[in-house]
Design a protein around this nucleic acid. Structure first.
Length: 493
RNA sequence: GGUCUCGUGGCCGAGUGGCUAGGCAGAGGUCUGCAAAACCUCGUACAGCGGUUCGAUUCCGCUCGAGACCUCCA
């Protein structure tokens, strides 16, 4: 297995050659959604980013165990004493059981992922199902001396940890600076230092989601779940940990501290972070009120949207930018992506039907080199936009062969088909849209075929007025006709 | 305020110390009854000001501008 994969590691701020800890196995953990709201465009970015990573690693022959969690407990509303978690709050508002809320939004997340053609992870653990693992990890941290109890809660002792290990190794922060910049919040009196974070929180009386523990009836702090579940399924030291850049600090920084304190070693070899989606240049976020849900994108029902955008358009739009760049949303950009995707998918269909000639007529375009360039693009820190640029070079070639302006022999056609289908379908995960096609056999299909036949007759009689009338009237009800050299095709908008 | 990132042609978006990214839009052409599609040709972009260099969009400094994190967030 030849391997020239380089991965940008946030820990070193450099691209590094990817060398798994125990090949051919790769362990990858990615922070999943907090299921207390409809999945929005922001959720799609990390899901698609690490789907691409997952697919490429598998393509290279690695046996990947991909763990992506469901956060269904433990995220505090804020870091103060009220300690109300998001799931519980939502449950109270809607008068539902917390787990009913969790199930509802987990389902809608899964449905959105399915539509976006995001492969399911190998394991999708729930935080609420791993309270025991979290408690035992807290116990280990207490035993190692890097945590203290206070008022029924357990806090991580950042200052003490920082004397022995660098706190800030991932995010580049310094404890002294944190001290200067941390805000004075209410209810900090339980902590030794304001930057200490909770490992276990004692639940207030109105708090619904709670578990008994040796410290109090309460719930785990919001960095614990990823540390505990990552360790549980991937071990004390695994290959890749991914997530959004916004999680870099304090979430991932604290995960490192927790793992080092509990297990005595750095938990992760490669930290990968996808960048944010912006909307009008501003970060898209639920709290900013500018988050557009994926369902709204698919239906077009949102004031910011000029039209509906299909799941594959969204996916292609994201893959056209590198995962470490911010990506600015706009109708214009999405419409451009939609058209580009249509051209790519049309070429795929054309390629499927292409017949070989005895010779190839293109010297300048070496298909083996082209295939290698596609491969190199992905090996260069998963550079999907460069891969897509290469694929469009092939689109031109495919179309010119179809038009009879170029010829391709059997051997080259095999190379082209194999590589094009592999990269478009398997790596980028772009598939034909799920459209309710009329089909040749349905009554609708037969009716349209009949009208096409009538129009054909009109054309033969040079009655173009009648021919155009049929085409225009069909277009008015969403049936688009396209004349090709092999006859008339139709598709339904 | 602290830490950090970014500023590329009409829009989106790669990349590089000297050699065409790509997509969308636009202009011209070929093809077609027309339309659509497709193909060909076309834009010499890299915030500003200095510096390093034979040469910088790419390295360094400053200025301006935008954004992220420091607080729940993918």
């Amino acid at each position: 297995m030849e391997n020239n994969l380089s991965v940008y590691n946030t820990l070193s701020r450099k691209k590094e050659t990817f060398e798994p800890l125990s090949p051919p196995h790769v362990g990858m953990y990615v922070c999943g959604p907090t299921v207390y709201g409809d999945p929005h465009l922001g959720h799609a970015r990390p899901a698609i980013t690490f789907d691409l990573v997952f697919r490429w690693l598998q393509h290279l022959g690695y046996k990947v165990r991909y763990v992506r969690n469901i956060t269904d407990v433990g995220h505090l509303e804020n870091d103060a004493d009220e300690g109300e978690d998001k799931i519980a709050k939502k449950a109270r508002l809607e008068e539902l059981e917390p787990m009913e809320v969790v199930q509802y939004y987990t389902n809608s997340y899964h449905e959105a992922m399915r539509l976006l053609n995001v492969l399911p992870p190998s394991i999708e653990p729930h935080a609420s199902g791993h309270i025991i693992e979290q408690m035992s990890m807290i116990r280990k941290i207490l035993d190692s001396g890097y945590a203290y109890t206070s008022g029924g809660s357990v806090y991580f002792d950042v200052e003490k940890y920082n004397n022995d290990h660098p706190y800030g190794i991932l995010s580049g922060r310094k404890v002294e600076e944190l001290l200067a910049t941390t805000r004075e919040l209410e209810g900090q009196h339980e902590k030794k230092n304001p930057f200490d974070f909770a490992l276990w929180k004692k639940a207030s009386p109105e708090h619904i989601m709670r578990w008994p523990s040796e410290w109090s009836d309460g719930f785990p702090g919001w960095h614990m779940e990823c540390s505990a579940m990552g360790t549980r399924y991937l071990g004390d030291h695994f290959d890749i940990h991914g997530g959004g850049m916004d999680l870099l600090f304090p979430h991932h920084e604290s995960e490192i501290a927790q793992s080092v304190a509990a297990n005595g070693q750095m938990p992760v070899k490669y930290w990968m972070h996808n960048n944010m989606i912006t909307i009008n240049g501003q970060k898209m976020g639920k709290s900013l009120g500018n988050a557009v849900s994926l369902a709204e994108f698919f239906s077009g029902q949102h004031p910011l949207l000029e039209q509906a955008y299909s799941p594959m358009t969204i996916r292609f739009f994201m893959l056209q930018a590198h995962y470490r760049s911010t990506l600015d949303f706009s109708n214009e950009a999405l419409q451009a992506a939609e058209k580009g995707l249509q051209r790519l998918m049309a070429a795929k269909e054309t390629l499927r039907q292409l017949a070989p000639s005895h010779v190839s007529s293109f010297e300048a375009f070496n298909l083996k080199e082209w295939k290698d360039k596609c491969h190199e693009a992905m090996n260069d820190d998963f550079n999907s936009p460069v891969l897509i640029a290469h694929l469009f070079e092939a689109v031109k070639l495919i179309n010119s062969i179809k038009d009879g302006k170029s010829m391709i022999d059997q051997e080259n056609l095999e190379i082209l088909k194999d590589a094009f289908f592999t990269f478009v379908d398997d790596i980028l995960g772009l598939r034909a849209e799920e459209v309710a096609s009329a089909g040749q056999e349905s009554l609708t299909g037969k009716l349209i075929e009949t009208l096409i036949g009538l129009r054909q007759e009109a054309k033969l009689n040079k009655d173009y007025a009648a021919a155009d009338q049929i085409r225009n009237k069909l277009a008015a009800i969403g049936v688009i006709l396209k004349d090709t050299k092999d006859g008339t095709e139709f598709f339904i908008e």
